[in-house]
Computed example of a mutant assay.
Amino acid sequence: MLFERTFWWLHISGILIFLNYLYYSKHLHILLAFPNTFFANLDPKGKFVNNKTVKKEVKRMLDPNIDPYASLESGSESSKFGASDVLDFNWVQLMNSYTCTECGRCTSECPANQTGKLLSPRKIMMDTRDRLEEVGANITLNGSFKDDGKQLLNNYISQEELWACTSCNACVEACPIGIDPLSIIMDMRQYLVMEQSAAPGDLNNMMSNIENNGAPWPFNNQDRLLWANDN
């Protein structure tokens, strides 16, 4: 009887100790999997949210009843486009990083990774979590975040990784608990393009052609049908 009770209490004590350890270990995903799945993005895959500031600017240009030179309302402009560090992400994206079980399904399904590119969606989530923990320790130590000379972009995740992504959503589809590495990648890409003008050369050329010619090709739109005259 004593033998049975001893192991019963050892069993219960082990469970209680593990429950306290749970919050400080990688097993935290056991608890976060439920809210993460509940708050997962259920929009059709491939749908991207328009930037509110850019959308408002486009509407101002297209609406003949609005003075395009009038000043915008106070607070309507975005102070920063995209994300360069974890403080720029929303809370769902940060919860995604803590929910990751590191199973690697996203990376195994990633076509960029399969073709030898540097990108690994699993690493994207792990790097985000590592940086978030570093920022958390910084805030705990200083009371508020003090610039430590580092950020998620470049110090943890390279530009090569970001531009290797084809935005196919294979990683999102593969995740069993609805983690979305693509949203983090796209936010960081937006920062590179709109804040740093650091898009790859080919992409910059294409965007310049669209701006000047209305098409991705370096030809004037009035010359598009000249090929027909050759026949």
Rank of each mutant, 00 (worst) to 15 (best):
C175D: 04
L119M: 03
L62N: 08
I17K: 10
V54Y: 11
H27L: 11
N65G: 09
S183L: 05
G116N: 10
L94H: 03
L182R: 00
F219P: 03
I184P: 01
M194C: 09
P218F: 05
G46P: 02
K55G: 08
N41F: 02
S78D: 12
D43M: 12
L31I: 07
E173Q: 12
L192Q: 03
I179E: 07
Y69V: 09
M188E: 03
S13H: 11
I157L: 06
Y24H: 15
N90P: 09
N41E: 05
C110W: 04
D43E: 10
D85V: 04
V58C: 04
L42T: 12
I12H: 09
C165E: 00
I139W: 08
H11G: 13
L2P: 14
L2D: 15
C106D: 00
T6A: 14
I124N: 01
K52P: 01
D223E: 05
N50H: 11
Y98R: 04
C165W: 01
D223K: 10
W91G: 08
N205K: 13
K146F: 11
I177T: 03
I210F: 04
K56V: 10
F145E: 15
F145V: 12
S108K: 04
P176T: 03
H29L: 00
L162N: 06
V92G: 02
I210L: 09
A40M: 07
D180N: 07
Y69F: 13
L16V: 10
I66Q: 06
